[in-house]
Every structure is written in structure tokens, then in C-alpha cells.
């Protein structure tokens, strides 16, 4: 395989830029969450470090890095080390299939604004999100603590339940765009985003990815009222930080996916494509923070009831209706 050095340089630049942007966004999302929650709850929030507290994420990282790295004596040491990475890496990898802008042309070289244009992009996302489950489960198990184990088992059950409805909600999207490729899905929404045709699928997907993010009202794996901190109770320092940042990377990635599947991806009037994509993704992130400030936590049986007895049948029904409509209109 021979490649133009300019193409390789452009690709490397793109890779670096995306990696930096996602990590920075994740760090600032933590800050934004604290400020917005404070605003919702009529407090001030972190406002001391730098102007408006904007350097707070940096201070947090320094604090986490300089903390003592504790491993419980009875823990499975290797798995304990491995689990935070298993939670954060799949989330980062999923971003590689999200198209975040229209293809650019720089000095005669076209640069598609996504890392890997797979023709099974959607399946790649589903496969990796089913792998992301292990981070929570193994983290909880390897700590060898009762709270962690309970959190891990809860997380495992919750994530596999909601993955099902998430996958089923995406089937109509594939049926309408006739492709698993993310680029094709975005192209199919050029004139009209899929949310117009598929509002039910969008709502099911939105609820399911909120559960996949393990956010309130679905944060049972780390329910602090009953499980201390759930699966990451025993983690300290940057290992805890990796779990924490992984959660926010997940929010960004799933927001980007919601934008790609239902909101037309980077399509939009007037503003440049990358800006439209960012607006849609950040709107989802804001929704997550808003939900956290508003809703109470579900009970465990309510969580399972919602996933298996409401969302999954509704998603199946939606597939059937979409199939009939496509059959009748074709």
C-alpha cells in the first residue's frame, strides 16, 4: 500500500485534533456540569480557579494525578488496573466512525471529516458498546468489595438490557438509509433529518443511551445513597479519574451518535458543518445535565420494567410499522 505523505500528514493531524478535542471537551463537560447543576440548584458552583473558574478542570487533573494510587489488599491487581481503561477506550474508539463534518479539500487532497469510514460503522458502534460493559463489571468484581460487586452486577444487567432497545431503535434508521455506513446515513438525511420520520425511535434511543451513560435517572450502578459509589468505590486518584472521564467521553460520543442517526449529522443551514455537529452534540450533553438536575433515580425493578416491557416491545412495533410504510411507499 502506497500513500501520499501529504495524506498521511493530514490524517495524523486529524487524529491528533480529534483526540485532543474529545478529551478537552470531556474535561470541560465536567466543569459545565458542575456550573449548570449549581445554577439549577441556586448555588454558585466552582468559580475560583481562573476567570469564571475556567481553569478548574486543570486543577482537578493535577489533584487526581498527585493523589495516592490505592489498590485494596484483596483485589485482583491486574484486572483492577485494567478495568478503567476497558471503560474509557471503547468510548474513544466509537468516535472514530462518527462523521463530524463535510469532507474538506486542502491543496487538492480531500479530507473526509471522520477517522474511519467503515461500511459497517453502525455495527462497529453496537459491537464496541457491548464491549464497554466489561469495564464496569470487571471494575466491580476485581475490587473484591461488596458495594463494588453489587454495583458491577447492576451495571452489567442494566447495560445489556438497554443495549437491546438501543440496537432495535436503530433498525428503522438502517432501513430508511439502506446502509450501515455512517456516511450514507448522514447523506440520507440531507433534505430531512430522520427525527421527523422516526420520533418514536428517537425517544427510545435517547432513553436507552441515557441508561448506557449510567446517568441519573439510570445511575443505579453507582447509586451513592445505597452503594457508596458502586463499581468504582475502591478506586482512587487517576484510575477513578479515568472512569469519571470515560463517562463524559461517553456522553459526547453518544450525543454525536444521536446527532448522526436522527438529527441529520453535520447537515444544517447557514453555519459550517462542524459547528452544526458540535451544537447538536452539546445540546444532548446539556440535556443529560438538565435531566440530572431534575429527575430522581429509578428503582431497580422500574428500570428493568422500562427496558424490557416498554422500550423493547415499542422498538419492535416501530420496526414493523416502518417496514410496512417503506413497503407501501416503494
Amino acid at each position: 500500500m502506497t500513500a501520499d505523505p501529504v495524506d498521511i500528514a493530514l490524517f495524523a493531524a486529524k487524529l491528533g485534533a480529534v483526540f485532543f478535542a474529545v478529551l478537552t471537551l470531556a474535561a470541560y463537560l465536567v466543569f459545565a456540569e458542575r456550573r449548570i447543576l449549581a445554577w439549577i440548584q441556586d448555588r454558585k458552583g466552582p468559580n475560583r480557579v481562573g476567570p469564571f473558574g475556567l481553569l478548574q478542570p486543570l486543577a482537578d487533573v493535577i489533584k487526581l494525578l498527585t493523589k495516592e494510587d490505592l489498590v485494596p489488599a484483596a483485589a485482583d491487581r491486574w484486572l483492577f488496573y485494567l478495568a478503567p481503561a476497558m471503560a474509557a477506550i471503547p468510548a474513544l474508539l466509537i468516535f472514530s466512525v462518527i462523521p463530524f463534518g463535510a469532507p474538506l479539500t486542502i491543496a487538492g487532497h480531500t479530507l473526509p471529516l471522520l477517522i474511519a469510514d467503515l461500511n459497517v460503522g453502525l455495527l462497529f458502534f453496537l459491537a464496541l458498546s457491548s464491549i464497554a460493559v466489561y469495564g464496569v463489571a470487571i471494575g466491580g468484581w476485581a475490587s473484591n468489595s461488596k458495594y463494588s460487586l453489587l454495583g458491577g452486577i447492576r451495571g452489567l444487567a442494566q447495560l445489556i438490557s438497554y443495549e437491546l432497545s438501543m440496537g432495535l431503535a436503530l433498525v428503522p434508521v438502517v432501513m430508511m438509509s439502506r446502509s450501515f455506513s455512517m456516511t450514507d446515513i448522514v447523506t440520507a438525511q440531507q433534505s430531512m433529518p430522520f427525527i421527523v420520520y422516526q420520533p418514536l425511535a428517537f425517544i427510545i434511543f435517547l432513553i436507552s443511551i441515557t441508561a448506557e451513560c449510567r446517568r441519573i435517572p439510570f445511575d443505579l450502578p453507582e447509586a451513592e445513597g445505597e452503594l457508596v459509589a458502586g463499581f468504582h468505590t475502591e478506586y482512587s486518584g487517576m484510575r477513578f479519574g479515568l472512569f469519571f472521564v470515560g463517562e463524559y467521553i461517553n456522553i459526547i460520543v453518544l450525543g454525536g451518535l444521536a446527532a448522526t442517526f436522527f438529527l441529520g449529522g453535520w447537515h444544517g443551514p447557514l453555519l459550517p458543518p462542524v459547528i452544526w455537529f458540535s451544537i447538536k452534540t452539546l445540546a444532548f450533553a446539556f440535556l443529560m445535565i438538565w435531566l440530572r438536575g431534575t429527575l430522581p433515580r429509578l428503582r431497580y425493578d422500574q428500570l428493568m420494567h422500562l427496558g424490557w416491557k416498554i422500550l423493547t416491545p415499542l422498538a419492535l412495533f416501530n420496526i414493523l410499522v416502518t417496514a410496512w410504510l417503506l413497503f407501501l411507499t416503494s
Binding site: L118, N119, V120, L123, F124, L126, A127, L128, S130, I131, V133, Y134, A137, I138, G140, W141, L149, G152, I153, L156, A157, I160, E163, F180
Partner: peptide
């Protein structure tokens, strides 16, 4: 065969092994 690869990860590594890990964790 990218489709087979994705399904392999999704079904075997994702679904079936999750259930096995679940049983191991529950039975301890």
C-alpha cells in the same frame, strides 16, 4: 467480511460472554 467481524464481536464477545461473566460474578 466486516459484517461477520462486527457480529462476531457483538454476539460472542458482547452478548454471550457478558452472560457467562454475569453468572460467574453472581455465583462468585
Amino acid at each position: 467480511a466486516p459484517f461477520m467481524a462486527a457480529v462476531q464481536v457483538m454476539v460472542y464477545a458482547g452478548a454471550i460472554m457478558v452472560l457467562i461473566v454475569f453468572v460467574i460474578m453472581l455465583l462468585n
